[in-house]
Every structure is written in C-alpha cells, then in structure tokens.
Write a protein that binds this DNA or RNA. Structure first.
Length: 492
RNA sequence: GGGCCGUUAACUCAGUUGGUAGAGUAUCUGCCUUUUAAGCAGAGAGUCGCGCGUUCGAGUCGCGCACGGCCCA
C-alpha cells in the first residue's frame, strides 16, 4: 500500500536521480568535528553579530526546511540538540546549491561551516559545504502535531522518538533511573550479576511462565518469572551482596499495567533484615528520585507524592481493616472472604486459598489508596513461601511491600534460609498447584539443596522498574515507558 | 474474557437525514538571498482497516473479522 504512495514514489525517483549524478546516497566517510551541544558551547565565546572563524563539520537530520529560491534555512538535528543552518547559493556555489535543492526533510546531511547570528538573533550554522549522508525514502510525520496514532507510536517507536520530544525524554529518564539504582548499589559494594533467564524450574514468584524448548538438550525450559532463587544461590556461594537489573517474563494478559516482559531490580544483602532493607529502600528511592528529577517530590496523575520520608509503615491487618473494610475475623474464613469479595464485585478464581483471596481483596480495595510511599508489613506465611517467619508471630513473615501512587513498587523480606521449612513451604505450594492453583510455586529441589549447604541470614528485595519509571515520568500506561511494548501481530 | 470508542491522503483531522470524499501540514511546479508552523500562485495525491449484507446507491446503516485505545474483570 505504501509502495504505491505518491510521495514515496517521488522520493525513490529523486534518490535514483541523485545516484545517476554519481552522488552517493549512503556514504560513511564524513568526519564529524562537533555536535550541536559543542557548537552551542562555542557560541558563548562569540560576541553579538560576530561570525566564528572556527569551522564546524556537523552531521544530522533535516527536520524542517524553509527555502527562498537562492537560499534556505533548515533545522538540523543530532542526538545532542537542534540548530538552525543557513544555506546560501552564493556561499556554497551553484553546483552544491543544485544538490541541496534535491534534499528533503528527513535526510541526513553533513555541513561544514561557521556560526553567525541572524537578524533575529538566532545563532545559525552558516554552510560553506554540504553533503548528503543518507537519503530518506519515507517522509516524516507532520511536524506540528507530531505522531499521535498510539498504534503507530508503539510499532514504529523510532518515529515517535523523532517527532515527540516528551517521549524521548521519558526514555532518557528511564535510562537515568536504571543508572541511578545501579550506582546506588555499586557504591554499597553490591556485585552486579546475571542469572539464567531460561530456567528448568520457574520460581521466585507466583505467575504463569512462558515455555520454551531446547532442541539439543531435548529439554523443556521456562522463561524466568523472577531471578530470586538464583540470586540466593549466589549468596550461598559467598557473594554477600548481589543485584541484577533485567527482564522477567510472565504469561499473563496485557494491559496498561502489564507487559509480558518487564524489568526488575532484585538485590540481596547477607546479614541484613527486612527492617534494614526498608531503611535502605527509603534511602535508595530518595536518591534515585533526587538524581533523576532534581528534587524528591513529584506529581503522578494528579496526585502529589513526596519521597522525602520517613515513610508510613502499616500492617497488612490494619490496611485491610481500615482501608479495605475487611475485619480480621474474616482472615482465615475462606467462605466469608468469598462472600465479601462477591459483595464488593471482586472476582476470585475458585482454586485460590484464603490468603490469596485476602491479597486479591487488598489489590483491589486497598492498593489504590496507598498514594504516598507506604510500607505494608506483616504478610501471612501462606502467600509468602520464600520469606522468613516472624519470631514473635510464626504465621506472619518478615516481609514488606512498598506502595507509591497506588501501585506496588517493591517487595522485600528477610529470606527463609531454613531448608526444611523451605521444603515444607514448597510442598504446601505443590498441594495448592494440585488443587488447581496454576500460579503456585513449583518444587525446586535443587534450591533446597543449596539452602542445605547454608545461606547466611539475608534480606532481599525486588523493585518494579517499569512501574517506578511510570511514576517519575507521570505515565498512565506501561507502554509509555517500554520502548517496544508487546502488541498483537499487525493487521495488513 | 466483557463493555465503550476508534481505524478516511505520507501525517493531523473534518465528512450533515445514505447520493459516489474534504481541510491543514507534507509533496510537485513557478516566484522569492535573514526565515523559524516563512510567504504568494497553481497542481497532483484515497482499496474511506478487511469481508459479507441491506439498498437504485454505503465512508455513513447491519453483521462478522483484524488491529488499536480506554474502562471493567
């Protein structure tokens, strides 16, 4: 369909015409001396109205073109910024100007020239020499409205990045966020590691995995739903502080909050407790927010959020009763919870146990109310199969979840390092699975063996990077913070 | 999975009670040597997402499908 489009046909002919004149359409030997930000620095040294003696060799894309017959202004863009350039026939010569006339918005060109100030005071690259660096065959979207069609924005993200500066900023911020988390942990002697994404037993979370198959090994493998169990094996191996920032995969529906592949930070610290991690978490998020935004407060979807701290701590019990209206007497009564869920219009899968129903009710009724950063603590053992039991209350684990902007952002706990308790917990999960709970944990014998060699007391945490990027960029959908979000196959 | 909305030129969008498709930007031609959403004059450009149906006639009405968005679960 595009192939018959008039504009593309014209561009192809134009390209052919240039090639016929022995003009290279895609050369790679242009030497760049300056980028736009470098020129802007240079400008500070110039006096008003003065033309630079220095010559700049610059490469970039034509983003706008205003021609006047024998002269033209263009907007010329590279990664570091945009600058205006002035192309004048009497300066570059008749032959070069004729070449310039065949350039289009979207083409990459090389310009050698000085810098001067126009009548209106704008510093402008004054071309002495121009060159085609890459001919664009397809026209860019309209400059004023940019690219709006959300489907096209996701499928052809390069156009989105090119035309919508706010989108570009989101992804630059995303990179800074990840960089800041990494720096924070590196400064505290955490070792960055990579653990398998293809796992024989998927573990570390309650989720449905993607299946794959290794032909040579004749072996079924799962894309990881979390790196947790491997990172803790590394703690067994003597790496007392480790972290990993990378993708996990969950075979679930796609929504404005879920992408099948998403990025988590997980980190583990030996001889720390979940209390220590809450302090560290507060410090870490404050650090990242300050680094990325330059301040520790921001607005998310109309809600003011202050990361300064100290953050509120709330027991799950209090959160459920005070914010969700669920009395503690209902906690272990599966039938009453089901009835309550029904009365609240919350749909529950049949196989779920009381603890899971409780968590579902929490997700729907309580979570959206936790706008300011809040630690919720005191999760039941039933829904925390990898977390250490509280010494005072054995049915409760030493676990917290962090909520910001009505979303779960992090989940951390003192790790269960008693191999026999871990084995019992796995067996309990396997029973759930046999009762039809697809998301219950698998038995991981190999992990139990690792614990039998001895894992020091450890605390660990997972952070949803995409969700936090959403917060700091005020993005309503996860698709706005993932460069290439998962979509269905394009229609014809 | 359910509900609502969308899909029209390269892009952003109009399109009336059903009568055979428009604008702006972009493109092409001409004029224009300090413009910045440059300007002036002219021109070309469409499988109206796909399919079936109703109708003398469908961008418009109905059904199905595809893709996307929002909300619910």
């Amino acid at each position: 369909m595009d192939e018959t489009s008039e504009i593309i046909r014209q561009r192809r002919e134009k390209a052919r015409g240039l090639a016929d004149q022995n003009i290279e359409l895609y050369p790679n030997d242009f030497e760049v001396s300056h980028r736009v930000d470098g020129v802007r620095e240079h400008i500070h040294q110039l006096k008003e109205g003065e033309e630079s003696t220095a010559v700049f060799a610059m490469a970039g894309r034509i983003m706008a073109l205003r021609g006047f017959g024998k002269a033209a202004f263009i907007h010329f863009r590279d990664y570091t910024g945009q600058i205006q350039a002035y192309i004048k026939r009497d300066e570059i010569g008749v032959e070069q100007y004729a070449l310039f006339k065949q350039f289009d918005v979207g083409d990459f060109i090389g310009i050698k020239g000085s810098v001067f100030q126009t009548k209106t005071g704008e510093w402008t690259l004054f071309a002495k020499e121009i060159r085609l660096l890459c001919k664009a065959i397809r026209p860019l979207p309209e400059k004023f409205h940019g690219l709006r069609d959300p489907e096209k924005r996701y499928r052809q993200r390069y156009l989105d990045l090119l035309m919508n500066p706010n989108v570009r900023d989101v992804f630059i911020k995303r990179a800074r966020i990840i960089e800041s988390f990494r720096n924070f942990l590196l400064e505290r002697s955490f070792l960055e590691v990579e653990t398998p994404m293809m796992q024989p037993v998927p573990g570390g979370a309650e989720a449905t995995p993607f299946k794959t198959f290794h032909d040579a090994l004749g072996m079924e493998l799962f894309l990881r739903i979390a790196p947790e169990l491997y990172l803790k094996r590394l703690v067994v191996g003597g790496f007392e502080r480790v972290f990993e920032i990378n993708r996990s995969f969950r075979n679930e529906g796609i929504s404005s909050r879920h992408n099948p592949e998403f990025t988590m930070l997980e980190f583990y610290q030996a001889y720390a407790t979940y209390e220590d991690l809450m302090s560290l978490t507060e410090e870490m998020f404050r650090f990242v927010t300050q680094r990325v935004l330059g301040e520790t407060h921001f607005t998310y979807q109309g809600n003011a959020i202050d990361m300064t701290g100290p953050w509120r701590r709330l027991t799950l019990k209090d959160a459920l009763s005070e914010l969700g209206g669920i009395e503690p007497s209902m906690w272990n009564d599966r039938q009453r919870l089901l009835d309550f869920a029904k009365s609240e219009g919350v749909e529950i899968k049949k196989a779920r146990r009381a603890g899971n129903i409780l968590m579902k009710l929490f997700d729907v009724l309580v979570e959206p109310k936790l706008i300011e950063p809040t630690f919720v603590v005191g999760y039941p053992v039933e829904v925390s199969p990898l977390a250490r039991r509280s010494s005072e209350e054995p049915d409760i684990t030493e676990r917290f979840e962090l909520f910001i902007g009505g979303r779960e952002i992090a989940n951390g706990f003192s790790e269960l390092n008693d191999p026999s308790d871990q084995k019992r917990r796995f067996l309990d999960q396997v029973a759930n699975r046999e009762d039809g709970d697809q998301e219950a944990h698998h038995m991981d014998e190999d992990y139990v063996v690792a614990l039998e060699y001895g894992m020091p007391s450890t605390a660990g945490e997972g952070v949803g990077i995409d969700r936090f990027v959403m917060l700091l960029t005020d993005s309503a959908s996860i698709r706005e913070v993932i460069l290439f979000p998962q979509l269905r196959k394009a229609g014809q």
